[in-house]
Each structure stands twice: as structure tokens, then as C-alpha cells.
């Protein structure tokens, strides 16, 4: 029993690491209907920049602040050079543009900061803590708290502020938003900047766990099943989806793994995602068109 609980809880907590990545996608998808393939490379870029600045001798907080400034500037540049000229094109065009963008961002990161692996020490000791007889990783607990806090802050931003309401208005109906004077370009800049910040948080957590290196951009592939299960348009969905994926892959590895020789974690979430696509294509919390007949 305690093995089951330990596997479940470990999985749930680890799953919040996926949620962190998925939230960045949700933000941009909500506001512009684009699956932003570049989210992974932005995550890598921001983590790498922070580590490089920190290694150059700047205090951690200052490095983080500078990285955020760069992310804001980056959002403005991307909006001007990619989103604005392609506005009102098909989602596929925009997706291809973000695919291209991901290589540009990654290339820039490599060109400026090199391709070495950097260690990132957040000062969190990865010592296990016992709750009764269940073993829980301290790092995972902190990651889960971070994801929870982030979701809460974003929920407040979305529901209580003018920017948040404008953002949801744009997500619902771009033309109507334009007609009442909402500045679409500004909204896109803000969303990309916020998604960049979320990417930074995710990048720091993942970087602290496995080192800041180029494979970080591949966490995109972990976020995809999370989004399919939770829904592309819901931050809550990204959290729940992450929990489900984390728990499911951990349980599968422990209980099914031994029979088929292990190595289940990379593909099991996708099997789960396909099952969800059969029964609930919009995901658990995905928005379907809200219309009264």
C-alpha cells in the first residue's frame, strides 16, 4: 500500500513539472489560437540566459530580472516581426511560423551562450521527506507549490484585471474586441511576455533538476499529452492534466513496467492522450463553443 501511495504521490508531484510547461502553451493558445511550438525553445533560452548571467557573477535575483526584461523585449519583437504580418492567416500558417521561430530562438541561444550543460543550483536540497511511511521528494514539493502559485496568480490576472478581461475578450472574439477599441497587438505582446515568464519559471525548475542544456527544449513533447488531456484552453486543465500524466506514468512504470522491461514513461502519456482523444477531444477542461441554440 505504501508503495502505491508513494508512487502515486511522487507521480502527482512530478506531474506539476509538466503542468508548468503546459501553462505557457495554454496562455498563447487561448489568446491567439496558435499552438506555439517555440515555447520549448523560449523556455530553454530564458533558463540559459539566467544561468549565464548568474555564472557571470550577477546575483540570482538581478539575473532573473534582466532575463524577464529580455523576454518582454523578445515578445515585442516577435509580435512585430512574426504575429502582426501574419495576422488573420490560418492557424497552420501561424503554427509553421512558430516552428521556424523555435529554431531561430534555439540558434540564437546557442550562438550567444554556447552549447555546454550548466548546473543550476537553487539551494533546494533534494532530500526525501517522510510523511508517515510515505517518502516524498522535497524538490517535487517545491515544484508543486510553484505550479500552484503560478496558476493562482494567473487566475487572478485573468479574472480580476483589465488586461485579463481584455485578454479573454480577444480569445473569445478578435473582431468584436477590435471593434470596441482593444489593441490586439498590445494584447499579443503581453501574452507572449507572460508566456515567456511562465517559460522562465518552468525552465528554472527543469534546469535545476536536470541541468540547463539543449535537451530542455524537448520538454515540449512532455507538455503535449498534458494539453490533450487537460484541454488547450484551460490553465486549471494544464494543472490537472499534468497531475494525471505524472501519476499515470509513474504508476505504469512501477506496476506494468516490470512485465514489459520498463521504459514506459516516454510513451505512456501518449497512449493516455489518444484514449482521451477518443472520448473527450476537447480535453477535460477545454472550452467548447458556448452557444445557446
Amino acid at each position: 500500500m505504501s508503495l502505491f501511495l508513494e508512487t502515486l504521490i511522487g507521480g502527482l508531484l512530478a506531474g506539476t513539472m509538466y503542468s508548468l510547461v503546459a501553462i505557457g502553451f495554454v496562455l498563447i493558445y487561448k489568446a491567439s489560437g496558435v499552438f506555439n511550438f517555440a515555447q520549448g525553445s523560449i523556455l530553454l533560452f530564458s533558463a540559459l540566459l539566467l544561468v549565464t548571467l548568474h555564472e557571470a557573477g550577477l546575483p540570482f535575483v538581478l539575473s532573473a530580472a534582466l532575463t524577464m526584461l529580455v523576454l518582454i523585449a523578445g515578445a515585442v519583437v516577435i509580435e512585430h516581426t512574426v504575429l502582426r504580418p501574419l495576422a488573420n492567416r490560418s492557424p497552420m500558417t501561424l503554427f509553421m511560423a512558430t516552428l521556424g521561430l523555435s529554431y531561430v530562438v534555439e540558434g540564437t541561444a546557442q550562438g550567444l551562450m554556447g552549447a555546454q550543460v550548466h548546473a543550476l543550483d537553487l539551494g533546494i536540497e533534494d532530500v526525501p521527506i517522510f510523511f508517515g511511511d510515505v517518502l516524498v521528494s522535497q524538490f517535487d514539493l517545491i515544484a508543486a507549490t510553484t505550479a500552484g502559485t503560478l496558476a493562482l496568480v494567473l487566475a487572478l490576472l485573468f479574472n480580476r484585471t483589465r488586461i485579463g478581461i481584455s485578454l479573454r475578450a480577444v480569445a473569445d472574439d478578435t473582431r468584436a474586441a477590435l471593434s470596441i477599441g482593444i489593441n490586439l497587438n498590445r494584447i499579443w505582446q503581453i501574452v507572449w511576455a507572460v508566456a515567456g515568464m511562465v517559460g522562465l519559471v518552468a525552465g528554472v525548475m527543469w534546469g535545476a533538476r536536470q541541468g540547463v542544456q539543449f535537451s530542455l527544449s524537448l520538454v515540449v513533447l512532455k507538455a503535449l499529452p498534458v494539453l490533450i488531456i487537460g484541454g488547450f484552453t484551460s490553465i486549471g486543465g494544464a494543472i490537472v492534466g499534468g497531475l494525471i500524466v505524472g501519476a499515470a506514468e509513474n504508476l505504469a512504470e512501477t506496476y506494468i513496467g516490470p512485465f514489459i522491461g520498463g521504459g514506459i514513461t516516454p510513451w505512456f502519456p501518449y497512449v493516455l492522450a489518444i484514449a482521451f482523444l477518443y472520448v473527450r477531444p476537447a480535453g477535460l477542461f477545454g472550452e467548447r463553443a458556448l452557444e445557446r441554440v
Binding site: 483589465r162 478581461i165 481584455s166 479573454r168 475578450a169 480569445a171 473569445d172 472574439d173 473582431r175 468584436a176 474586441a177 471593434s179 470596441i180 477599441g181 482593444i182 472550452e287 463553443a289 458556448l290 452557444e291
Partner: peptide, 18 residues
């Protein structure tokens, strides 16, 4: 073209932002 997922009052608020 109302903002379907926003409440009635949020729709009106959005109108005032300009």
C-alpha cells in the same frame, strides 16, 4: 459577437476599457 465565455458584466466592462 458577444464575448461568450465572459459574463454579461465583464462584456460591459470590456466596453469601458477604451
Amino acid at each position: 459577437h458577444v464575448f461568450g465565455h465572459l459574463t454579461v458584466e465583464e462584456n460591459l466592462r470590456a466596453g469601458t476599457f477604451l
